[in-house]
Design a binder for these strands. Structure first.
Lengths: 145, 145
DNA sequence: TTTAAATTGAAATCCGTTTTCAAACGGATG
DNA sequence: CATCCGTTTGAAAACGGATTTCAATTTAAA
């Protein structure tokens, strides 16, 4: 999604919820969109501190939760005990490949897998609302080493 | 895997590692195998307390980690911030369907999905070591309600 | 037995997340 | 603008599950 589009979506959300548009929230969204995906609260907090030391961890934390609530970000857990956030691609869904050596995270999408998931769930009487698929292994760089 | 087989595998593991076979470890393994899968440390601890109040949380925690190390149990995370353990089925791998309403967890396995995962990973230069696939949705009971 | 090393359990500590609360801010209103 | 009220902020405290500490106990080898 376009950055401007995302920003206005957030502002609209704030308005609807009776929340206020503040300097911090704008800065945080700005940096969140600039930075790559899969950042932890800590990651984003540190990036923001470099440019603006007067920003608190709690605010970053709360704002990321707002992003998730608003639908412009999604929270993820990759097993290292830290929550990470990524910008949502709206309708576009994707899963993750994670290199267990270097920590590199690659996104992918495969409609065939998605289809099979629906089928398998149905066989067990389930209807799927969402799913999580993570493949852990070695990326090309780390396999050679 | 047979309970007796699992127990001897654990004893063997302890021996190899220069660790000791203790009353607590036996009790914990016994109860772990008796109880259903997907228990948190707390769950197992409480069950054990009922029968034997002289068992500590720390010991349950440490013993479950030993089980995982030994290969007779696997640690899982289902997003509620609590680690859960399940007995490993050796070669048998399975994934999970989780009902978001009642919390029911159903295990399933689909070789077609597994195969596609390997293919997709290869397309990105990855070799897979393990994966996690969780489908969240509504089970047949909860869908009707 | 005796002994050295491993184990135990209560309590303390860790560490990421979340909440508290007084001060600062946003923005609606006169 | 100036005022006011509800929202937000950030530092610090609280939280919660996981993990470690340490003195007392248990294991099993000698």
């Amino acid at each position: 999604m376009l950055k401007t589009r995302t920003k206005s979506k957030f502002k609209e959300f704030l308005l609807n919820q009776g929340l206020k548009s503040t300097q911090q929230r704008e800065l945080i969204l700005e940096e969140f969109l600039r930075a790559g995906s899969h950042l932890s609260t800590e990651d984003l907090y540190l990036r923001l501190r470099k440019k603006n030391p007067r920003i608190g961890y709690a605010t970053v934390h709360r704002t990321l939760k707002l992003f998730a609530e608003c639908g412009i970000a999604e929270q993820r857990h990759f097993g290292d005990g830290q929550a990470r956030y990524e910008a949502s691609d709206q309708d576009e869904h994707h899963d993750h490949l994670i290199c267990v050596t270097c920590g590199r995270i690659v996104e992918f999408e495969d409609p065939r897998i998605e289809q099979l998931q629906v089928e398998v769930a149905a066989e067990h009487g389930f209807s799927i609302e969402r799913h999580r698929l993570e493949l852990y292994g070695f990326c090309s760089d780390c396999r050679q080493a």
